[in-house]
Amino acid sequence: MSDMTNREVLLSLRNVEISFDNGGKEKFKAVQDANFDIYKGETFALVGESGSGKTTIGRAIMRINPLSNGEITFEGNRISGKLSKQEDMNVIRNIQMIFQDPAASLNERATIEYIISEGLYNFHLYENEEDRIAKVDKALEEVGLLPEHKSRYPHEFSGGQRQRVGIARALIMEPKLIVADEPISALDVSIRAQVLNLMNKLKAEKSLTYLFIAHDLSVVRFIADRVAVIHLGRIVEIAETEELFAHPLHPYTISLLSAVPMPDPIIEKQREPIVYTETVAEKTGPDYEMREIRPGHYVYCTPEQGIEYYNTSMNQ
């Protein structure tokens, strides 16, 4: 990992709060005070369990969920809140999404050619028919599919191939950022490996940046450069991947790590899950904030806990 200070920020979240009206007097805050930067060319993972707000953040970046507070900027320009049509189009082009379930996210009545071309049609990103087809063929090739797949329908493909179509559809827009929301969770083990390898290959070839949303730390360790752990709408820890795994500090992160099943019967049968039961209410207050405990390693805690975490990290 290169020096952090020299890196260019691509996407930035500042004090982001996202709330939903649940019919009651109090709105439900799905995400509270989220702050992080995603640097150009990195894979930034957002890890948490269902209901933690990780997908909500992803959707807010895609401008699907409005913010109730805070700001999101992309290349220095605000992309949250009201935008002009031109700005909106710009965001859509530059930030693309890959979804969890490739069967549900592809139009089953459209051919692969149409599915992949749709973004090109909407933005008139092709000179003529020949150019459009050449672009589709290139996108297919990049994800390891063949030109003759163009005329087929999604149901004719396996799960891994469908996810490749989803990736090709995002790639053809030549985005700068791809938000990948649990892109391998619905796939079989052997297929997962293919998709992860493909994402890594494309990142290197096209200097892409990913926001990788996941619940599984074992996948995150393999694919991410930096990780943010989110629990019940609050980011509780951010660090570079190696640092986070070497020095997990927040008790929730430790609980998540202890729950990763290891493929070794002797070891796995001895491992005990560490249960984390504290609620946000118990873990929040005026003294709580994101504190830098080690270089580039932030934990949501009080000053006293910060010292405790620092001491722990020296013994890890």
Partner: peptide, 13 residues
């Protein structure tokens, strides 16, 4: 298994 993956290398598939 991603648990066995080495960062920067391809995962077996």
């Amino acid at each position: 298994l991603p648990q066995l993956g080495v960062k920067g290398e391809d995962l077996y598939y």
